[in-house]
Every structure is written in structure tokens, then in C-alpha cells.
Design a protein around this nucleic acid. Sequence first.
DNA 1: GTCAGATGTTTTATTAATAAAACATCTGTA
DNA 2: TACAGATGTTTTATTAATAAAACATCTGAC
Lengths: 172, 172
Amino acid sequence: MSAEVWKEYESNEISHSVAHHLAAIYELMRDQGYARVSDVARALDITRGSASLTLKALKAKGLVVEDHNKFLKLSEEGKGIVDAILGNRAIVRKFLKDVLKLDEQRAEIDACKVEHLLSAQTGVQLLHFVRFLFSADPIAKQFLTEFWERSEEDILSGDLLESVTSLLDAEK
Amino acid sequence: MSAEVWKEYESNEISHSVAHHLAAIYELMRDQGYARVSDVARALDITRGSASLTLKALKAKGLVVEDHNKFLKLSEEGKGIVDAILGNRAIVRKFLKDVLKLDEQRAEIDACKVEHLLSAQTGVQLLHFVRFLFSADPIAKQFLTEFWERSEEDILSGDLLESVTSLLDAEK
DNA sequence: GTCAGATGTTTTATTAATAAAACATCTGTA
DNA sequence: TACAGATGTTTTATTAATAAAACATCTGAC
């Protein structure tokens, strides 16, 4: 793997922590109508001091704006970022849970870990795919039924890398 | 989202950096037969000093072992971890590139970002899924053909979160 | 009006991963 | 043999995200 590719990770503008600070504001606004530093800290289970510092940085970056009364909200740019992240989370979770049939908890955790790292294109394409999978199209219905049936028998032996490698090799 | 879920991220035993140090050793061993601190540093495009410190920690954790001549290799545990990570990378990349039809570079970068974060169960289930998709089964073939045909017209309007939300709501 | 409790900020410290620079060691060539 | 170049380590500094503790401010109950 090339160094340019692996170093993309660090250049990700939105860290996991930042993603969740922004998402917390979004959810607090939606659920209780307002969001203060303390509310964010409580929601994320971190200290107020920590939230205060991270949110100060986000205000400086223009992703979060503050009321005359210290009430926080997302800027337009902040909203756009949260939208992409929560969109990715929702579609990945659905795919893992309802297509791959991972248990709820696993799907939730994995989706939460990758939501801020997947590109918007990936989210959009996955949405297309899942939408077609669950559409009324008989081929899609048949495909899903057969996949799930088959999953019950088909138990993987050996290690993952080897299995994937042989799948990839088989194509050529 | 619950705090227990989002904090799982930090508790991930393998960071992106560690994942790539381990993978570099694996690939160097495979490609040139040996791996030293300098080789790893060069492969990752970081300084020798940095690689030295990170690898020291990995030796202390028992994931990497060192020759009498400073040659590095993976322990059994280290091998297991690399196996899971490269397995995840390979299957995610294939899914993104050959099913969702994302361009090569995008698929590579996204797979690289999430490879160490996805659970083994997710990797295994995705492998099952992709294997069936590309199997000789006529339903799978038909399904893929129709999905790709449809993709050409079906352009998404509006924002991702809204589209996913309406997909999710539609089910109930 | 006072005091308790909640809220917000700042300062100090920690951790992981990095760079940079100084230093030590090893190796091969002239 | 001596020196150049590669290799490995250590030390110092930086950054992001955290905790903890000290501090300031605000608010509401009595």
C-alpha cells in the first residue's frame, strides 16, 4: 500500500471526537430544542472542561456558533457535515443489520466507528444499493431470500484473509 | 446515541497507525523476505525515530518480535491481527469497487480507513455476501446486472441523511 | 439576601503518534 | 584502517483529546 493512501487517514478533516461533538449538538437540538456545553459533555460522557475546549475549537473553525446566552448551534457548514455523517451511519447500520444480519449492537458499533471516515460517494452508492435490495423488484426479493437461506448453511472455514484472497484470485 | 457505543472507538485495541506498522511488516516479509525498523519507516513514509518508538511498544505488547540481528517479524498474535485487518481491507475494497462501482482510488482509501475498525464478524458476513453476489447463481447474476443498469439513471437528489431517513421510514 | 447547585472556562497533566536532531553502531569500500 | 553511509535509539517538542481541579458566574430556593 502506498504511503499517500494510508496517510489520508490523518488528513481526514473530521475526527471521531469532532464528529460526535457535532452529532450531539444536532441530536440535542432535535430532542430538547437547545444544546449547551454541559449538555454536550453529558451526552458524550466527558468532562465539561474537555467539551468546552473542543467546542471552542469548533467555534473557531466556524462549525458551531454560540448564542448571546451560550446556547450552541450548528453553522450551515456544521449541519452539512453532520448530515453526511449521520447519513453514512444510518445507511451502514441498515446494511449491516438488515442485509448482512449482524446483531443490532454490532451493527450500531461498527457503523459508529466508520461513519465519519467513509466518503460521501460511498454513502450515496450504498444507499442506492440498499434501496434496490429492498425495492419491490422481484429479482431483488428473490436474491435476498436466497442469500439468507444460503447463509444458514455456508459456514466459513479458515481465516478471513485467505478466503478473500482465494475469492479474488478465482476471478482472473 | 449512547455514550457506551461512541466510546468503543477509543477502546479499539488497534489504532490506524499500529495497523499499518503491522501490515508493513507483513508486506515487507512477503515481498522482500525481511523487515527492519528502517524498512517499516520507509514503507510508511515516517522517520526512523518514530517507527522505532512505535515498534518498541509493539514488541512490548508481544505483537512484534525481534531477531538477534534486529530483524522484525510478527508474533502469532500479530499475524492474527494483520490477517483480520488485511482481510477486511480486501473484502471492503472489492465490495466498493466491483459492486458499488466506486473508482479504484476511492475504494482503496475508504477501505484503508475502516479496515481496522470493522469487526471480524462484519468482514466475514461481507465476504459471504460478495461471494454469493459473484457466484454462478443466475439470480445473483441477474440481480447485479439489473442493479448496475438501474444505477445509470437513478441519480439521487437532496441530501443523504434525508434520503436514508425516508428509506428507513418507508419500511414501517 | 444568601447559599447551594449548575454551568462555563482555564490550567495542569497525560497519552499516542508524530518530527527533528543528536548520538551510537554497524558495514563496506577504497 | 579509516571514513562514508546506512541503521537504530533517545531526547525534545508538537498536536488532539482527554481528566482533574481550581476558579468564576449565574440561578433559584428559602
